[in-house]
């Protein structure tokens, strides 16, 4: 009897995605789906899709889904989770969605400690609209709205979301991973597993930033893209766990009598 050693996760639909060749959204979808399968929560998971390249994520995950307005996924997720605390709720958002138009929603959702999981895919550019500069675009990186490369004197430096959210006291699991190599993907899955587990245990807000490639809008081949991510993005966006529920920075503050 042949044994299947690699199958489609139950939480992924059996359809082709619209993602470009070399884009790592497909990998990240798979990692999320594997984690949902392994935790056995598919039938009580509700996802929230963003506006951006992953706007059609509801077609690719085999669970109930909301498609949110641009940037508002954390607010939508808040509504779902408050309505039905028994559901496992995650948002899946890109960097234009989360770090630009949706900055208020992500900061306040994290700061309220909503017990949801945020999968934040950072590919340093606006993908769906055609390669405009994002809040995460690297200094000097060419985009269609910064054709001479990002000028930090004019538009500031890229925003490090994991670090920024980590400055808040409430949110409790904040990590950054990457998807540019098999080893990085294994680590990303571990981060996602921890994030979803903390939610299932009803412990805390969790966010995993996953660095991703965009060969189409970076103007590179898929192989060049993973190399560019490693050489250019990794030094600025270090991987690691920035905050855990048991960390010292979440010890109770002395209360006034």
């Amino acid at each position: 009897m042949p044994e299947a050693v690699f199958v489609r996760p139950d939480s992924l639909s059996d359809v082709s995605t619209h993602y470009c060749p070399g884009c790592t959204h497909g990998i990240i979808h798979r990692l999320v789906a594997e984690v949902i399968d392994e935790l056995g929560i598919r039938d009580r998971t509700v996802g929230v899709a963003p506006v951006g390249c992953s706007v059609l994520a509801y077609n690719y995950f085999d669970c109930d889904f909301h498609e949110a307005a641009h940037g508002r996924a954390p607010a939508v997720a808040t509504g779902i989770k408050r309505a039905r605390p028994d559901l496992a709720v995650f948002s899946y958002q890109g960097d234009g969605d989360l770090a630009s138009i949706g900055m208020a929603e992500i900061v306040h959702c994290a700061n309220r400690g909503e017990k949801i999981t945020v999968v934040f895919v950072n590919n340093a550019i606006y993908g769906m609209t055609g390669g405009q500069m994002a809040p995460t675009t690297m200094p000097g990186q060419v985009a269609t709205t910064c054709q001479m490369g990002r000028d930090v004197d004019l538009v500031g430096h890229p925003i490090r979301v994991a670090e920024l959210i980590s400055t808040l006291r409430t949110p409790a699991f904040i990590a950054r991973a990457s998807s540019h190599s098999p080893l990085a993907a294994v680590n990303a899955k571990e981060m996602l597993r921890r994030a979803f587990t903390y939610q299932v245990e009803e412990r805390c807000f969790s966010l995993v930033e996953v660095l991703s490639t965009c060969p189409t809008n970076w103007g590179l081949t898929p192989a060049e893209s993973t190399e560019w991510l490693e050489k250019t993005m990794l030094p600025y966006y270090p991987l690691g766990v920035f905050k855990t529920p048991d960390g010292d920075d979440r010890a109770p503050l002395p209360r006034k009598p």
């Binding site: 509700v46 929230v48 909301h66 949110a68 307005a69 508002r72 607010a75 939508v76 997720a77 808040t78 509504g79 779902i80 989770k81 408050r82 309505a83 039905r84 559901l87 208020a104 929603e105 900061v107 306040h108």
Partner: peptide
């Protein structure tokens, strides 16, 4: 909520979940 923009999107989530 942090804003009216967030409020109405929280409604979108909660109503979508059937409440």
């Amino acid at each position: 909520a942090e804003s009216e923009v967030a409020s109405i999107n929280m409604l979108y989530g909660a109503a979508g979940a059937g409440e």
